[in-house]
Amino acid sequence: MEQSGKIGKEKLSCRGITKSFSSSSGNFEVLHDLTFDVYENEFLVLFGPGQCGKTTLLYMLAGLEECTEGEVFHNGEPVTGPAPSRAVVYQTMALFPWMTVWDNVSFSQKVRKAEKKVIAERTQYFIDLVGLTGFEKSYPVQLSGGMKQRVGIARAYCSDPDVLLMDEPFGHLDAQTRYMMQESLGKIWENEKRTIVFVTNNIEEALYLADRIILLSDCPSQIKKEYRITLPRPRSLVSPEFLKLRKEITEQMNMSD
């Protein structure tokens, strides 16, 4: 609405959402009065320092945490709880250790009681898409960190959500694997356009993937600034424009209000 040059219609709308946790020592405000929209097929990155409430915000978008104040809307409907139309890739991956890669990825389709043939096709498609072909029968313990994150992403994609919410999905990876995963997520997203809200505290990752970056401040978090990233894809991490934006955002983040 207040955004000019939007990509599509609003998918998610946050209106003045505030979150505080009550503890014995009183109320602890994590998020303060956030208002923003996520547009259709947009890759939105929520970028902020550690412990600023990124996970909490994402869970509120998912409907897993209640807003203390304000409201979240999905396609105009208020969000009151978790729903299959908003899939989450968790910071901790949260794969089911007792299920094979195949069963983890197909889980949402089975819960939905989809047709057997549809389940098989979809599951194989997304396993192939994240590059796990041949590991269908492996259990999570048998996979490397990067492979587990791929399973998490395939599982979320396979549920055919309207919006994908990803919480630092590459947070635990080494730089090399992380870069590889960013590259392949970029490709997956180009092939399977979705509305994605992606949380990170890594500036390169944010700039590499985002259509738009929302910069969050320290706790209690507020929106510090928004950046629309129009660099052509696939992006180069060393192009002058990239480096300039990187410097600008880093400086902005380290600046105290």
Partner: peptide
């Protein structure tokens, strides 16, 4: 894990 199941309906 319960959340995973719940978000998938």
């Amino acid at each position: 894990h319960i959340w995973v199941a719940q978000t998938f309906g």
